[in-house]
Design a protein around this nucleic acid. Structure first.
Lengths: 151, 151
DNA sequence: ACTATCTCTACTTTGTCAGTAGAGATACAA
DNA sequence: TTGTATCTCTACTGACAAAGTAGAGATAGT
């Protein structure tokens, strides 16, 4: 799993919007708060808007805001909005790939990989990030020092 | 997580070697058994060899075989051999990225993602694939019908 | 010596990543 | 209604990776 700059930026921008509360936030303010190139950020916000996660207004009093309460926007939603499906095998959904011979059980493995990704990304919301209170599952997983090693 | 053709091929080739048992298996036989383009497969086997997972011999009686017992080769080993680290955030290891402001807890999330990937890929071996007997953890994860849906 | 196989370097083609550029639309203010 | 600040949309670029292809060279066995 490589978390791209785009996904990283998208989640950070959403968290910033969540923590800012109600009113519209200007692109430039987000750009500065999270050190994201403005034009690149605008592209990303456009995709989030198109996916219905963000709303916006132009003009002097314009800016961006979350379309839904932050605790109803999962990290998985943000990733899907800017990058498509969470997991794929050679471009196909994991459950559709067929294997022959000795590799036959491999499909099940990729399905398990996706399920474990979801266990993290579908449980955590933008509000969790903004508040710093991650779900108990995540705290448990990351409480193992092994999780923090590169090995 | 996008599973690339290269990773997919590498795991399948390794499983095929595992199920074939002792003697050297020719590249062309592997290529046909798993429908992998021969020259591409040779590149991949070269990387597996360089990583010490596979050994080989040239000549008429030549071929490839696993350097270690199949139950001592984890899927994670194969992935690392051909693609590098299991998880990264903008090219860096998850535990090294620093966030500011509202995004601060994000690092922990990426660490949890990697930990959950490892939970699958470090527990399953090439032997598990070849025998069709996946670890109990994997069976449990994939027993939930939800794991098989695209949603 | 011959042949089959692995080995190594290089090349191609296509697509994605990360970002940049600039003209156009629109909301608000004076 | 003119101006200005902001979002919006399309297009472009340069670097890199993904997926394969090509062919000459090394070596093990017959």
């Amino acid at each position: 799993m490589r978390v791209s700059a785009k996904v990283d930026y998208a989640v950070r921008a959403a968290a910033e919007l969540a923590s800012a509360g109600e009113g519209p936030i200007k692109g430039e303010a987000l750009s500065k708060a999270q050190s994201i190139p403005l034009k690149f950020l605008e592209n990303i916000l456009g995709e989030l808007k198109h996916a219905g996660l963000v709303r916006s207004q132009r003009g002097t009093e314009g800016g961006y805001w979350l379309a839904r309460p932050a605790d109803e926007i999962k990290i998985a939603d943000v990733i899907r909005a800017v990058e498509g499906p969470l997991a794929s095998v050679r471009g196909e959904p994991p459950e559709t790939v067929k294997y022959q011979g000795a590799a036959e059980p491999l499909g099940k493995l990729w399905v398990a990989v996706r399920a474990n990704l979801r266990a993290v990304l579908e449980e955590t919301t933008i509000a969790d990030i903004a508040n710093g209170t991650l779900p108990a599952v995540i705290e448990e997983i990351t409480s193992d020092p092994q999780a923090w090693t590169t090995h």
